[in-house]
Design a protein around this nucleic acid. Structure first.
Length: 202
DNA sequence: CTCATTTGACCACG
DNA sequence: CGTGGTCAAATGAG
């Protein structure tokens, strides 16, 4: 990949990248602010699964002053989420009572006052221990096969790798790979700190 | 409909 | 009280 990782503290780590690189996580923008003495605004993102999976990851993205082609991305926290097919399906797929006739309820009326941002929390009531496990960054919560993602299995690594290094990413920007300056591709100072790097998406 | 983004208000903290 | 970060209503996309 073509990131230069500057530093990583326990709280955050900062990366640079040309153009908007898909880091494999689902982000949701929740703010944008003009920063003092800064030409470009700062964008605030948090993980899409902040509520449905209690994922605390967030990031800030800002163009770099003297190199507007590049973005500085500051990550906070780490992802505890997994790519989910669909939360509502989990409800329906839940083994209720094994009876196939329980579909008497409408999906919208399954729970009272379900709406976005909060409905998934109800869903996670099915998994009572979720909150504790988040803190411990445990590997196996609420999903079977979830533990597979903790090790870079060939399958998952291949998937994420192809996504990140795909030619599309390179050519998506005005600044093609041909014009990348010397150290873009070569300097990767990944600080693996505590093995929190999960290449676990799709 | 569901879910994401935009954008000014709001708030905490120095 | 200014600044940076977040909230949430309005708006938009699919």
């Amino acid at each position: 990949m073509f990131w230069k990782i500057y530093r990583k503290t326990s709280e955050s780590n900062i990366k640079e990248s040309s153009d908007l690189v898909d880091d494999g996580h689902a982000w949701r923008k929740y703010g944008q602010k003009q920063i003092l003495n800064s030409t470009y605004p700062r964008h605030y993102f948090r993980c899409t699964h902040k509520y449905d999976q209690k994922c605390q990851a967030s990031k800030q993205v800002q163009k770099i002053q003297d190199n507007p082609q590049r973005f500085r991305t500051t990550y906070y926290g780490h992802h505890t989420c997994k790519a989910f097919p669909r939360v509502s399906q989990i409800i329906l797929d839940s083994p209720m009572d094994g009876n196939s006739n329980y579909i008497s309820f409408d999906q919208n009326h399954t729970f009272p006052s379900i709406k976005q941002e909060t409905k998934e929390e109800v869903v996670f009531g099915f998994y009572p221990k979720i909150e504790d496990q988040i803190q411990s960054s445990s590997s196996d919560y609420f999903l079977p096969n979830d533990h597979d993602h903790d090790h870079l299995t060939p399958a998952t690594f291949e998937a994420s790798g192809s996504r990140m290094t795909s030619p599309d990413v390179m050519s998506s920007g005005v600044y093609s790979s041909c014009t990348t300056t010397s150290n873009d591709n070569l300097e990767i100072d990944i600080d693996f700190e505590e093995g929190l790097w999960n290449f676990d998406q799709v």
